Computed example of a mutant assay.
Amino acid sequence: MLEMEDMLRKLGGYENSTALGLDENLIYESLQKAHLVRERCTLLYYYNTKVAKKS
């Protein structure tokens, strides 16, 4: 993670969630739930491209 922080600092960006004003718990919770978003998007894609076209 430090390598990423160094790269962001060199590019002039914020290097961590605290600098962005984001709570560490929010970041952790978001990472834990990210798979749910991916699953929903996959299901919507499948429905829209496979199921809805047959109707």
Rank of each mutant, 00 (worst) to 15 (best):
D6Y: 11
L36N: 11
E5W: 10
E29G: 06
Y46L: 02
Y45A: 01
T49K: 03
Y28Q: 12
L26T: 04
E15P: 02
G21I: 03
E3T: 05
M1V: 09
Y46H: 09
V37R: 06
S17W: 15
D6R: 14
S17F: 07
K54W: 12
M4L: 15
N25T: 13
Y46A: 01
M7L: 15
N16S: 15
K50N: 03
R38V: 03
H35L: 11
L2S: 09
L43C: 03
T18N: 11
D23R: 12
E29Q: 12
K50H: 06
R40P: 00
T42Q: 05
K54M: 14
I27C: 06
Y46S: 01
E39W: 13
Y28K: 12
Y14E: 12
Y45M: 01
I27D: 00
E15L: 11
E5L: 09
K53E: 03
L36K: 11
L2V: 05
L20I: 05
V51H: 12
D6N: 15
Y14A: 13
S55F: 13
E24S: 11
M1F: 13
L22C: 08
T18G: 07
K53T: 06
A19Y: 12
C41I: 00
L22H: 05
R40W: 04
T18H: 13
A52G: 03
C41F: 02
E24Q: 14
L22D: 02
G13S: 11
T42H: 07
Y47G: 02
N48S: 05
R38D: 10
Y28R: 10
L31D: 02
E39C: 11
S17G: 06
L11T: 03
